[in-house]
């Protein structure tokens, strides 16, 4: 699935949710990978703010006031950018 608007992101600011430090607030810029439909269903949508609460085997993040635990493979598919 392609998302054309992702192109307007600065390349060097793009990282996945796995690379974000614990406690950081980031904005989801793109979802890419086989799990992205499922992620969307759970509310991981472009432009939404996420706070990463813990790292590890599965990471916990807070999205719109809800805590979600997702596996590292899924988190790898969430491309985020730092908050402006």
């Amino acid at each position: 699935m392609s998302h054309t608007h992702a192109a307007d992101l600065q390349i060097d600011s793009a990282m996945t949710l796995n690379q974000v430090g614990v406690g950081c607030d980031v904005r989801i810029s793109q979802l890419s990978g086989p799990g992205c439909d499922r992620l969307r269903d759970l509310g991981f949508c472009e432009q939404l703010l996420v706070r990463k609460l813990s790292a590890g085997r599965n990471l916990i993040c807070s999205l719109c006031g809800t805590r979600l635990a997702i596996s590292r493979e899924l988190a790898e598919q969430v491309v985020v950018s730092p908050m402006a």
Binding site: G35, L39, L42, I60, T66, A69, I70
Partner: peptide
């Protein structure tokens, strides 16, 4: 199909 660990932690 791809399945992943995905869990909502309700308040």
């Amino acid at each position: 199909g791809a399945t992943h660990f995905l869990l909502e932690l309700p308040p």
